[in-house]
């Protein structure tokens, strides 16, 4: 049987890694919902959820349980299959991104050298980009299948917002790629880890800012949460959803947030690099674990910033949103790209 030619151990290894990462992501997402409430509370001088378990730590499980236990409602006039497909797509697209994120360098386990990255494809960033552009389908299909005009409007808003900001995001990204010369996330992180080299954010402050803003918009986070504008659209594209399908939508938003934080960390903040520490001097396994922790720390910081912004800044109006995307960010990103290219050419002589 030629099927045996497959490296079964590698397959198992990758499957385990995928399982760990997916569940870890879900776990983190779970706690991000909790963190959101907690951060909001703290920023508003109140304690936040604190009843379920010590410090309210079991709150997310209670929330999840509540969502699962809720009644499943599929509206009569909705398109059944697409109504179900929508949240699934949203969740899948959100989770697919994690495939190319280098969580850390390799660990040595059972005599095998295991990379802590699901797939180091050489066009990692493009992959991320592609997957992000697919994320909009979940929202659009869900919004359309609900057969509700508010949902549809929210879905269209979400789609146009995502498409608009993807452009600026891509242009900002290109400047980073010009600095690093590679599309592989692993390579980009490794480059930043080289001694004597600063994190990319030092070379690309403007690019980072643009990327950050676009990431916020892509995740539909405040101030860009137009698709969920309650006061205009009741609830947004998931208005007709209930139970775990709603949970999927809400969850995918948090997963997206985590993934974009991870990507920003990798692109601009050295990924799993621990500042002021030469990882090569440590034992590989220790370095790997410290690396994961470093990356997680960065992710947590980014998520905190996301939430911090959410609870500070009011929502944009729709025309302001579009103006910002098309008239400010894209020209800025182009300028950034131009300047980066010019400087690189100048340095090369």
């Amino acid at each position: 049987m030629t099927l045996l030619a497959i490296d079964w151990i590698l397959l198992i290894e990758k499957l385990v890694l995928i399982a760990i990462i997916v569940f870890a992501s879900l776990g983190i997402a779970l706690y991000t919902t909790f963190a959101e409430r907690k951060v909001a509370a703290i920023l508003q001088d109140r304690p936040g959820p604190n009843r379920a378990g010590p410090f309210g730590l079991f709150q997310p499980f209670a929330d999840g349980l509540k969502l699962i236990m809720k009644e499943e409602i599929i509206p009569n006039t909705a398109n059944r299959s697409l109504f179900i497909l929508g949240p699934g797509l949203a969740m899948t697209a959100a989770l697919m991104t994690c495939a190319v994120i280098p969580w850390s360098s390799h660990v040595e386990l059972f005599g095998r050298n295991i990379e802590l990255q699901i797939a180091d494809i050489n066009i990692g960033i493009l992959y991320v980009f592609g997957v992000v552009s697919l994320g909009v389908y979940g929202i659009m299909i869900g919004g359309w299948a609900s057969n509700n005009k508010f949902s549809l409007m929210a879905a269209l808003r979400a789609a146009s917002q995502a498409i608009s900001y993807e452009l600026a995001m891509g242009l900002a990204l290109i400047a980073v790629l010009m600095v690093s010369g590679s599309l592989s996330l692993k390579t980009i992180v490794d480059q930043q880890m080289e001694p004597g080299r600063l994190w990319n954010v030092a070379y690309q402050p403007l690019g980072f800012l643009i990327f950050f803003i676009c990431a916020m918009a892509e995740c539909n986070r405040t101030p860009f949460d137009l698709p969920e504008a309650e006061n205009e659209l009741n609830f947004g594209y998931h208005q007709e959803y209930s139970s775990m399908k709603l949970g999927f939508y809400l969850f995918s938003e948090y997963v997206n947030m985590i993934m974009s934080s991870a990507i920003m960390a990798c692109l601009y903040f050295g990924g799993f690099d621990i500042p002021f520490l030469n990882e090569t001097t440590l034992a590989p396994n220790l370095a790997a674990i410290l690396g994961v922790l470093a990356l997680l720390t960065k992710i947590v910081i980014f998520i905190f910033i996301f939430m911090w912004i959410r609870w500070t800044i009011p929502r944009f109006r729709y025309d302001q949103l579009m103006n910002l995307g098309w008239k400010k960010l894209i020209p800025l990103a182009l300028l950034n790209m131009l300047v980066t290219g010019a400087v690189i050419l100048y340095l090369q002589g």
């Binding site: 703290i42 920023l43 508003q44 001088d45 109140r46 911090w308 500070t312 800044i313």
Partner: peptide, 21 residues
């Protein structure tokens, strides 16, 4: 202006909570 606003919200982290449990 955004940074100013964020500084204001950030300062609230350290404020005393008026909550009565």
């Amino acid at each position: 202006a955004i940074l100013k606003g964020m500084a204001i919200t950030f300062s609230h982290i350290f404020k005393k909570q008026p909550t009565i449990r």
